[in-house]
């Protein structure tokens, strides 16, 4: 009886360990993802910022992808623009992060090659206290242990309750183009 119990405990321990290592192996991570957004209007100064420290996690079993960017990590060329962006528009003290949570549609990690393939991603983007559905196509390829994904989508500032004062309204595009570039490595 005692022996049986021992075996049971052991097998539970092994399966727990196995599932743990299994989980660990199926996550791909990027701590230095690049996200660029641009809301420039022709003839006016460019409204563009970039972060190179966005986080992205992809689980290749569940096809779930999550990404987080700290708003204060976005750098503008013009420091005054950066200041206004943080203080007046995105209010980064109150809403410090932008989070995307979603799923890759019809994704098969084993089918990835060095030639880029198009994969649809669906999810929600949370920003400035508001959540909005986002759907876009990513170009994904795999080199050795790195899954690289690139893509872009458009969002409107109004969807996230970001008010743009009248005085600068024609200098900032209503649609903001967001470009992402992630290189996820196995963890």
């Amino acid at each position: 009886m005692k022996k049986l119990k021992n075996i049971l405990v052991l097998s539970i321990a092994i399966s727990a360990f196995a599932s743990f290592t299994c989980n660990a192996q199926n996550k791909y991570l990027d701590k230095n993802g690049t996200i660029v957004f641009e809301a420039s209007e022709k003839l006016f100064e460019e409204v563009k910022a970039q972060t190179q420290s966005a986080t992205a996690i992809l689980n290749i079993d569940t096809h779930e992808i999550a990404s987080l960017a700290l708003v204060k990590g976005f750098r503008f060329k013009n420091s005054l623009m950066e200041e206004h962006f943080n203080e007046n528009y995105i209010e980064s003290d109150t809403y410090p992060k932008a989070v995307f949570k979603g799923k890759l549609v019809a994704f098969d990690s084993t089918a990835l090659t060095e030639t880029p393939s198009d994969i649809v991603v669906e999810g929600t983007l949370e920003l400035h206290g508001k959540t909005k559905d986002v759907r876009t196509t990513l170009s994904v390829h795999k080199i050795e242990d790195t899954i690289a994904m690139e893509g872009s989508f458009k969002v409107a500032a109004a969807d996230f309750n970001i008010e743009i004062p009248k005085i600068v309204r024609n200098k900032i595009a209503k649609e903001v183009l967001v470009q992402i570039d992630f290189n996820l490595t196995k963890k």
């Binding site: 991570l29 986080t55 996690i57």
Partner: peptide
């Protein structure tokens, strides 16, 4: 100090 990344539970400094 940029802030706290709660996905990875790390603080980011740039």
């Amino acid at each position: 100090c940029v802030g706290y990344d709660d996905l990875l539970e790390i603080v980011k400094v740039d």
